[in-house]
Design a protein around this nucleic acid. Sequence first.
DNA 1: TTCAACGTGTGACATACATCACTCCATAAT
DNA 2: ATTATGGAGTGATGTATGTCACACGTTGAA
Lengths: 187, 187
Amino acid sequence: MYDILKNHIEKIISLTDSEFEFVASLFTPKVYKKGQFIFHEGEYLTKNFFVCKGLVKLVYNDSDAREHIVSFAMEDWWETDFEAFYTQKKTTMSLICLEDTDVLFITYDDYKHLCNALPKIEHFFLEKAYFGFIAAQKRILSALTLNTAERYRQLIERYPNLIQRVPKSQLAAYLGVSRETLSRISI
Amino acid sequence: MYDILKNHIEKIISLTDSEFEFVASLFTPKVYKKGQFIFHEGEYLTKNFFVCKGLVKLVYNDSDAREHIVSFAMEDWWETDFEAFYTQKKTTMSLICLEDTDVLFITYDDYKHLCNALPKIEHFFLEKAYFGFIAAQKRILSALTLNTAERYRQLIERYPNLIQRVPKSQLAAYLGVSRETLSRISI
DNA sequence: TTCAACGTGTGACATACATCACTCCATAAT
DNA sequence: ATTATGGAGTGATGTATGTCACACGTTGAA
Protein backbone atom coordinates (compact mmCIF):
# COMPACT_ATOMS: atom_id res chain seq x y z
CA MET A 1 0.00 0.00 0.00
CA TYR A 2 2.74 2.42 0.94
CA ASP A 3 4.44 1.93 -2.43
CA ILE A 4 1.38 3.30 -4.14
CA LEU A 5 1.42 6.37 -1.91
CA LYS A 6 5.13 6.85 -2.50
CA ASN A 7 4.76 6.72 -6.28
CA HIS A 8 1.77 8.99 -6.06
CA ILE A 9 3.60 11.69 -4.12
CA GLU A 10 6.76 11.39 -6.17
CA LYS A 11 4.86 12.26 -9.32
CA ILE A 12 4.84 15.78 -7.90
CA ILE A 13 7.68 16.20 -5.41
CA SER A 14 10.77 14.14 -4.69
CA LEU A 15 11.37 12.72 -1.23
CA THR A 16 14.41 11.11 0.33
CA ASP A 17 13.92 7.67 1.84
CA SER A 18 13.94 9.05 5.33
CA GLU A 19 11.48 11.78 4.38
CA PHE A 20 9.11 9.22 2.95
CA GLU A 21 9.53 7.05 6.02
CA PHE A 22 8.37 10.01 8.04
CA VAL A 23 5.42 10.59 5.75
CA ALA A 24 4.49 6.92 5.86
CA SER A 25 4.68 6.86 9.65
CA LEU A 26 1.73 9.27 9.74
CA PHE A 27 -0.56 7.13 7.58
CA THR A 28 -2.61 4.18 8.79
CA PRO A 29 -3.83 1.40 6.49
CA LYS A 30 -7.41 0.16 6.67
CA VAL A 31 -9.40 -2.37 4.69
CA TYR A 32 -13.13 -2.16 3.90
CA LYS A 33 -15.62 -4.53 2.30
CA LYS A 34 -17.99 -3.62 -0.51
CA GLY A 35 -20.98 -1.77 0.89
CA GLN A 36 -19.25 -0.60 4.08
CA PHE A 37 -19.32 3.03 5.20
CA ILE A 38 -15.89 4.62 5.66
CA PHE A 39 -17.65 7.47 7.43
CA HIS A 40 -21.24 8.60 7.95
CA GLU A 41 -22.89 11.95 7.50
CA GLY A 42 -23.11 13.86 10.79
CA GLU A 43 -19.86 12.66 12.36
CA TYR A 44 -16.85 14.68 13.30
CA LEU A 45 -14.29 13.45 10.85
CA THR A 46 -10.60 13.97 11.21
CA LYS A 47 -9.30 11.85 8.37
CA ASN A 48 -8.29 12.22 4.77
CA PHE A 49 -8.28 9.00 2.79
CA PHE A 50 -5.95 7.87 0.04
CA VAL A 51 -7.47 5.01 -1.96
CA CYS A 52 -4.87 2.34 -2.75
CA LYS A 53 -7.27 -0.23 -4.17
CA GLY A 54 -10.99 -0.40 -4.84
CA LEU A 55 -13.69 2.17 -5.46
CA VAL A 56 -15.71 4.47 -3.22
CA LYS A 57 -18.48 7.03 -3.64
CA LEU A 58 -18.94 10.29 -1.76
CA VAL A 59 -22.64 10.63 -1.15
CA TYR A 60 -25.05 13.33 -0.05
CA ASN A 61 -28.55 12.43 1.13
CA ASP A 62 -31.06 15.23 0.66
CA SER A 63 -34.13 15.93 2.77
CA ASP A 64 -36.16 13.41 0.73
CA ALA A 65 -33.54 10.75 1.50
CA ARG A 66 -32.50 10.70 -2.09
CA GLU A 67 -28.89 9.78 -2.66
CA HIS A 68 -26.69 12.08 -4.75
CA ILE A 69 -23.14 11.16 -5.69
CA VAL A 70 -20.70 14.04 -5.33
CA SER A 71 -17.76 12.02 -6.58
CA PHE A 72 -16.24 8.64 -7.12
CA ALA A 73 -12.69 7.80 -6.10
CA MET A 74 -10.60 4.86 -7.14
CA GLU A 75 -6.96 3.80 -6.99
CA ASP A 76 -4.56 6.68 -6.58
CA TRP A 77 -7.22 9.23 -5.61
CA TRP A 78 -7.85 11.11 -2.40
CA GLU A 79 -11.30 11.34 -0.90
CA THR A 80 -12.93 12.82 2.17
CA ASP A 81 -15.61 15.31 3.16
CA PHE A 82 -13.16 18.06 2.55
CA GLU A 83 -14.92 20.86 4.36
CA ALA A 84 -15.41 18.68 7.43
CA PHE A 85 -11.78 17.59 7.36
CA TYR A 86 -10.28 20.98 6.81
CA THR A 87 -12.53 23.15 8.96
CA GLN A 88 -13.27 20.54 11.63
CA LYS A 89 -17.03 20.67 11.15
CA LYS A 90 -19.41 17.74 11.10
CA THR A 91 -19.63 15.83 7.84
CA THR A 92 -22.57 16.47 5.53
CA MET A 93 -21.75 13.50 3.32
CA SER A 94 -20.95 9.81 3.64
CA LEU A 95 -18.20 7.75 2.05
CA ILE A 96 -19.29 4.31 0.92
CA CYS A 97 -17.39 1.44 -0.72
CA LEU A 98 -18.62 0.21 -4.10
CA GLU A 99 -15.93 -2.48 -4.05
CA ASP A 100 -13.62 -4.00 -1.47
CA THR A 101 -11.30 -1.11 -0.77
CA ASP A 102 -7.90 -0.50 0.81
CA VAL A 103 -7.10 2.98 2.07
CA LEU A 104 -4.33 4.83 3.84
CA PHE A 105 -5.60 7.65 6.01
CA ILE A 106 -4.00 10.58 7.78
CA THR A 107 -5.60 12.51 10.63
CA TYR A 108 -5.99 16.27 10.53
CA ASP A 109 -3.47 16.77 13.36
CA ASP A 110 -0.92 14.60 11.61
CA TYR A 111 -1.61 16.41 8.36
CA LYS A 112 -0.87 19.73 10.09
CA HIS A 113 2.20 18.21 11.73
CA LEU A 114 3.39 16.90 8.38
CA CYS A 115 3.03 20.30 6.70
CA ASN A 116 5.01 21.98 9.46
CA ALA A 117 7.75 19.38 9.55
CA LEU A 118 8.04 19.00 5.78
CA PRO A 119 6.95 22.23 4.08
CA LYS A 120 7.47 20.94 0.56
CA ILE A 121 4.58 18.54 1.10
CA GLU A 122 2.34 21.62 0.99
CA HIS A 123 3.37 21.98 -2.62
CA PHE A 124 2.11 18.46 -3.22
CA PHE A 125 -1.24 19.18 -1.56
CA LEU A 126 -1.47 22.52 -3.36
CA GLU A 127 -1.16 20.79 -6.69
CA LYS A 128 -3.84 18.26 -5.68
CA ALA A 129 -6.13 21.08 -4.57
CA TYR A 130 -5.63 22.99 -7.82
CA PHE A 131 -6.50 20.01 -9.95
CA GLY A 132 -9.44 19.17 -7.73
CA PHE A 133 -10.72 22.70 -8.20
CA ILE A 134 -10.19 22.61 -11.96
CA ALA A 135 -12.03 19.29 -12.20
CA ALA A 136 -14.93 20.59 -10.12
CA GLN A 137 -15.18 23.71 -12.25
CA LYS A 138 -15.25 21.57 -15.39
CA ARG A 139 -18.09 19.55 -13.97
CA ILE A 140 -20.01 22.75 -13.25
CA LEU A 141 -19.41 23.80 -16.84
CA SER A 142 -20.67 20.47 -18.15
CA ALA A 143 -23.83 20.90 -16.11
CA LEU A 144 -24.31 24.39 -17.58
CA THR A 145 -23.57 23.59 -21.20
CA LEU A 146 -24.47 19.97 -21.94
CA ASN A 147 -27.69 17.99 -21.98
CA THR A 148 -27.97 14.65 -20.23
CA ALA A 149 -26.90 12.51 -23.17
CA GLU A 150 -23.84 14.67 -23.78
CA ARG A 151 -22.84 14.61 -20.11
CA TYR A 152 -23.17 10.84 -20.09
CA ARG A 153 -21.00 10.47 -23.17
CA GLN A 154 -18.44 12.83 -21.70
CA LEU A 155 -18.34 10.77 -18.52
CA ILE A 156 -17.76 7.60 -20.54
CA GLU A 157 -15.01 9.33 -22.49
CA ARG A 158 -13.25 10.72 -19.43
CA TYR A 159 -13.54 7.69 -17.18
CA PRO A 160 -13.97 4.63 -19.41
CA ASN A 161 -12.77 2.27 -16.68
CA LEU A 162 -15.19 3.73 -14.13
CA ILE A 163 -18.17 2.84 -16.32
CA GLN A 164 -17.22 -0.82 -16.28
CA ARG A 165 -17.20 -0.93 -12.50
CA VAL A 166 -20.23 1.13 -11.51
CA PRO A 167 -23.93 0.25 -12.01
CA LYS A 168 -25.79 2.66 -14.26
CA SER A 169 -28.09 3.65 -11.42
CA GLN A 170 -25.02 5.04 -9.63
CA LEU A 171 -23.89 6.90 -12.72
CA ALA A 172 -27.37 8.43 -12.89
CA ALA A 173 -27.02 9.60 -9.27
CA TYR A 174 -23.72 11.20 -10.25
CA LEU A 175 -25.09 12.87 -13.37
CA GLY A 176 -28.17 14.10 -11.55
CA VAL A 177 -30.81 12.32 -13.60
CA SER A 178 -33.13 9.39 -12.94
CA ARG A 179 -31.91 5.91 -13.81
CA GLU A 180 -34.82 5.57 -16.22
CA THR A 181 -33.71 8.59 -18.20
CA LEU A 182 -30.14 7.30 -18.35
CA SER A 183 -31.45 3.93 -19.47
CA ARG A 184 -33.19 5.56 -22.41
CA ILE A 185 -30.05 7.27 -23.66
CA SER A 186 -28.40 5.64 -26.62
CA ILE A 187 -24.65 5.93 -26.45
CA MET B 1 -4.86 48.74 -4.11
CA TYR B 2 -1.89 47.12 -2.45
CA ASP B 3 -3.43 47.65 1.00
CA ILE B 4 -6.34 45.45 0.00
CA LEU B 5 -3.98 42.72 -1.13
CA LYS B 6 -1.97 43.03 2.07
CA ASN B 7 -5.03 42.70 4.29
CA HIS B 8 -6.25 39.84 2.17
CA ILE B 9 -3.04 37.83 2.53
CA GLU B 10 -2.64 38.62 6.20
CA LYS B 11 -5.99 37.04 6.97
CA ILE B 12 -4.17 33.75 6.37
CA ILE B 13 -0.43 34.24 6.89
CA SER B 14 1.60 37.02 8.49
CA LEU B 15 4.23 38.86 6.49
CA THR B 16 6.95 41.27 7.55
CA ASP B 17 6.98 44.65 5.82
CA SER B 18 9.92 43.65 3.68
CA GLU B 19 8.25 40.37 2.77
CA PHE B 20 5.13 42.18 1.68
CA GLU B 21 7.19 44.66 -0.26
CA PHE B 22 8.63 41.73 -2.16
CA VAL B 23 5.19 40.28 -2.78
CA ALA B 24 3.86 43.65 -3.92
CA SER B 25 6.79 44.12 -6.29
CA LEU B 26 5.55 41.13 -8.30
CA PHE B 27 2.03 42.48 -8.80
CA THR B 28 0.97 44.99 -11.43
CA PRO B 29 -2.13 47.18 -11.11
CA LYS B 30 -4.52 47.61 -14.01
CA VAL B 31 -7.82 49.40 -14.46
CA TYR B 32 -10.70 48.28 -16.69
CA LYS B 33 -13.99 49.84 -17.75
CA LYS B 34 -17.37 48.16 -17.57
CA GLY B 35 -17.79 45.82 -20.51
CA GLN B 36 -14.07 45.40 -21.20
CA PHE B 37 -12.48 41.97 -21.60
CA ILE B 38 -9.63 41.26 -19.19
CA PHE B 39 -8.78 38.26 -21.36
CA HIS B 40 -10.41 36.42 -24.25
CA GLU B 41 -11.04 32.75 -24.82
CA GLY B 42 -8.31 31.17 -26.95
CA GLU B 43 -5.36 33.22 -25.71
CA TYR B 44 -2.32 32.05 -23.88
CA LEU B 45 -2.80 33.57 -20.49
CA THR B 46 -0.09 33.94 -17.92
CA LYS B 47 -1.85 36.01 -15.31
CA ASN B 48 -3.80 35.52 -12.15
CA PHE B 49 -6.00 38.45 -11.16
CA PHE B 50 -6.82 39.79 -7.74
CA VAL B 51 -9.90 42.03 -7.85
CA CYS B 52 -9.45 45.13 -5.67
CA LYS B 53 -12.59 46.93 -6.79
CA GLY B 54 -15.47 46.19 -9.14
CA LEU B 55 -17.06 43.04 -10.46
CA VAL B 56 -16.16 40.57 -13.19
CA LYS B 57 -17.65 37.43 -14.72
CA LEU B 58 -15.81 34.34 -15.94
CA VAL B 59 -17.61 33.23 -19.06
CA TYR B 60 -17.71 30.18 -21.29
CA ASN B 61 -19.24 30.39 -24.77
CA ASP B 62 -20.55 27.06 -26.02
CA SER B 63 -20.78 25.89 -29.62
CA ASP B 64 -24.15 27.66 -30.04
CA ALA B 65 -22.50 30.92 -28.90
CA ARG B 66 -24.53 30.84 -25.73
CA GLU B 67 -22.87 32.50 -22.78
CA HIS B 68 -22.51 30.56 -19.53
CA ILE B 69 -21.18 32.16 -16.37
CA VAL B 70 -18.73 29.96 -14.50
CA SER B 71 -18.26 32.44 -11.69
CA PHE B 72 -18.46 36.03 -10.56
CA ALA B 73 -15.64 37.75 -8.69
CA MET B 74 -15.76 40.97 -6.77
CA GLU B 75 -13.60 42.82 -4.27
CA ASP B 76 -11.14 40.60 -2.46
CA TRP B 77 -11.53 37.64 -4.80
CA TRP B 78 -9.12 35.98 -7.20
CA GLU B 79 -10.11 35.13 -10.72
CA THR B 80 -8.52 33.64 -13.81
CA ASP B 81 -8.93 30.72 -16.19
CA PHE B 82 -7.23 28.55 -13.68
CA GLU B 83 -6.37 25.61 -15.89
CA ALA B 84 -4.87 27.92 -18.50
CA PHE B 85 -2.88 29.78 -15.87
CA TYR B 86 -1.60 26.79 -14.04
CA THR B 87 -0.93 24.41 -16.90
CA GLN B 88 0.01 27.03 -19.51
CA LYS B 89 -2.68 25.99 -21.97
CA LYS B 90 -4.88 28.28 -24.01
CA THR B 91 -7.87 29.76 -22.21
CA THR B 92 -11.29 28.25 -22.81
CA MET B 93 -13.08 31.10 -21.04
CA SER B 94 -13.16 34.89 -21.06
CA LEU B 95 -13.06 37.34 -18.17
CA ILE B 96 -15.37 40.32 -18.62
CA CYS B 97 -16.03 43.35 -16.42
CA LEU B 98 -19.59 43.95 -15.24
CA GLU B 99 -18.45 47.19 -13.56
CA ASP B 100 -15.42 49.43 -13.71
CA THR B 101 -12.80 47.21 -12.13
CA ASP B 102 -9.34 47.55 -10.57
CA VAL B 103 -7.12 44.47 -10.45
CA LEU B 104 -3.66 43.48 -9.36
CA PHE B 105 -2.21 40.68 -11.44
CA ILE B 106 0.76 38.37 -11.12
CA THR B 107 2.32 36.42 -13.98
CA TYR B 108 2.84 32.69 -13.82
CA ASP B 109 6.61 33.06 -13.75
CA ASP B 110 6.45 35.56 -10.93
CA TYR B 111 4.01 33.33 -9.10
CA LYS B 112 6.50 30.46 -9.34
CA HIS B 113 9.30 32.76 -8.31
CA LEU B 114 7.28 33.97 -5.34
CA CYS B 115 6.57 30.44 -4.14
CA ASN B 116 10.24 29.52 -4.32
CA ALA B 117 11.45 32.66 -2.62
CA LEU B 118 8.75 32.72 0.04
CA PRO B 119 7.50 29.18 0.70
CA LYS B 120 4.93 30.21 3.28
CA ILE B 121 2.97 31.94 0.53
CA GLU B 122 2.17 28.44 -0.74
CA HIS B 123 0.24 27.96 2.45
CA PHE B 124 -1.80 31.02 1.53
CA PHE B 125 -2.52 29.73 -1.97
CA LEU B 126 -3.25 26.27 -0.59
CA GLU B 127 -5.93 27.67 1.65
CA LYS B 128 -7.42 29.64 -1.26
CA ALA B 129 -7.41 26.49 -3.40
CA TYR B 130 -9.07 24.42 -0.68
CA PHE B 131 -11.88 26.90 -0.23
CA GLY B 132 -12.26 27.28 -3.97
CA PHE B 133 -12.62 23.53 -4.26
CA ILE B 134 -15.10 23.34 -1.39
CA ALA B 135 -17.18 26.12 -2.92
CA ALA B 136 -17.17 24.43 -6.32
CA GLN B 137 -18.22 21.12 -4.79
CA LYS B 138 -21.07 22.85 -2.98
CA ARG B 139 -22.26 24.34 -6.23
CA ILE B 140 -22.24 20.88 -7.83
CA LEU B 141 -24.26 19.62 -4.89
CA SER B 142 -26.77 22.44 -5.30
CA ALA B 143 -27.18 21.54 -8.95
CA LEU B 144 -27.78 17.90 -7.99
CA THR B 145 -30.19 18.45 -5.12
CA LEU B 146 -32.10 21.69 -5.64
CA ASN B 147 -34.61 22.90 -8.20
CA THR B 148 -34.23 26.24 -9.93
CA ALA B 149 -36.23 28.26 -7.41
CA GLU B 150 -34.26 26.81 -4.51
CA ARG B 151 -30.93 27.46 -6.21
CA TYR B 152 -31.97 31.03 -6.89
CA ARG B 153 -32.97 31.59 -3.27
CA GLN B 154 -29.73 30.03 -2.08
CA LEU B 155 -27.78 32.35 -4.34
CA ILE B 156 -29.61 35.37 -2.92
CA GLU B 157 -28.95 34.14 0.59
CA ARG B 158 -25.24 33.49 0.02
CA TYR B 159 -24.45 36.58 -2.02
CA PRO B 160 -27.06 39.22 -1.20
CA ASN B 161 -24.80 42.04 -2.37
CA LEU B 162 -24.10 40.34 -5.70
CA ILE B 163 -27.80 40.30 -6.57
CA GLN B 164 -27.99 44.08 -6.28
CA ARG B 165 -25.19 44.54 -8.77
CA VAL B 166 -25.93 41.95 -11.46
CA PRO B 167 -28.83 41.91 -13.98
CA LYS B 168 -31.13 38.93 -13.59
CA SER B 169 -30.26 37.72 -17.07
CA GLN B 170 -26.69 37.26 -15.82
CA LEU B 171 -27.84 35.40 -12.73
CA ALA B 172 -29.81 33.10 -15.03
CA ALA B 173 -26.65 32.40 -17.04
CA TYR B 174 -24.93 31.55 -13.78
CA LEU B 175 -27.72 29.29 -12.53
CA GLY B 176 -28.04 27.55 -15.88
CA VAL B 177 -31.64 28.48 -16.66
CA SER B 178 -33.26 30.82 -19.16
CA ARG B 179 -33.90 34.39 -18.08
CA GLU B 180 -37.62 33.82 -18.68
CA THR B 181 -37.70 30.98 -16.19
CA LEU B 182 -35.85 33.03 -13.59
CA SER B 183 -38.25 35.89 -14.21
CA ARG B 184 -41.19 33.64 -13.36
CA ILE B 185 -39.74 32.58 -10.00
CA SER B 186 -41.27 34.25 -6.99
CA ILE B 187 -38.72 34.85 -4.29
C1' DT C 1 -37.50 65.48 -28.09
C1' DT C 2 -36.86 61.18 -30.30
C1' DC C 3 -34.94 56.94 -30.69
C1' DA C 4 -32.08 52.93 -29.69
C1' DA C 5 -30.45 49.70 -26.32
C1' DC C 6 -31.16 47.19 -22.40
C1' DG C 7 -33.41 44.83 -18.71
C1' DT C 8 -37.56 42.72 -17.51
C1' DG C 9 -42.18 40.42 -17.47
C1' DT C 10 -45.49 37.21 -19.54
C1' DG C 11 -48.40 34.28 -22.75
C1' DA C 12 -48.41 30.06 -25.89
C1' DC C 13 -46.45 26.02 -27.13
C1' DA C 14 -42.93 22.24 -27.52
C1' DT C 15 -39.91 19.16 -25.18
C1' DA C 16 -36.95 16.91 -21.89
C1' DC C 17 -37.24 14.70 -17.84
C1' DA C 18 -39.27 12.65 -13.37
C1' DT C 19 -42.29 9.48 -11.71
C1' DC C 20 -44.90 5.27 -11.32
C1' DA C 21 -45.70 0.82 -12.85
C1' DC C 22 -44.43 -3.25 -14.76
C1' DT C 23 -41.28 -6.70 -16.83
C1' DC C 24 -37.12 -9.36 -17.57
C1' DC C 25 -32.67 -11.38 -16.49
C1' DA C 26 -28.56 -12.81 -13.87
C1' DT C 27 -26.70 -13.90 -9.67
C1' DA C 28 -26.53 -15.11 -4.91
C1' DA C 29 -28.83 -17.09 -0.90
C1' DT C 30 -31.85 -20.63 1.13
C1' DA D 1 -34.31 -26.49 -7.00
C1' DT D 2 -36.41 -22.46 -5.52
C1' DT D 3 -36.53 -18.00 -4.10
C1' DA D 4 -34.84 -13.31 -3.08
C1' DT D 5 -32.14 -9.44 -4.76
C1' DG D 6 -30.10 -6.09 -7.70
C1' DG D 7 -29.52 -4.16 -12.14
C1' DA D 8 -31.63 -2.84 -16.20
C1' DG D 9 -35.25 -1.69 -19.93
C1' DT D 10 -39.69 0.49 -21.25
C1' DG D 11 -44.59 2.42 -21.59
C1' DA D 12 -47.83 6.11 -19.88
C1' DT D 13 -48.43 10.42 -17.89
C1' DG D 14 -47.56 14.90 -15.52
C1' DT D 15 -44.58 18.82 -14.87
C1' DA D 16 -40.78 22.03 -15.18
C1' DT D 17 -38.34 24.45 -18.28
C1' DG D 18 -36.78 26.11 -22.97
C1' DT D 19 -38.14 28.74 -26.82
C1' DC D 20 -40.40 32.24 -29.47
C1' DA D 21 -43.04 36.27 -29.51
C1' DC D 22 -44.46 40.49 -27.82
C1' DA D 23 -45.00 44.41 -24.51
C1' DC D 24 -43.30 47.86 -21.29
C1' DG D 25 -40.26 51.01 -18.73
C1' DT D 26 -35.72 53.19 -18.02
C1' DT D 27 -31.57 55.23 -19.49
C1' DG D 28 -28.47 57.53 -22.36
C1' DA D 29 -27.22 59.20 -26.98
C1' DA D 30 -28.35 61.79 -31.23
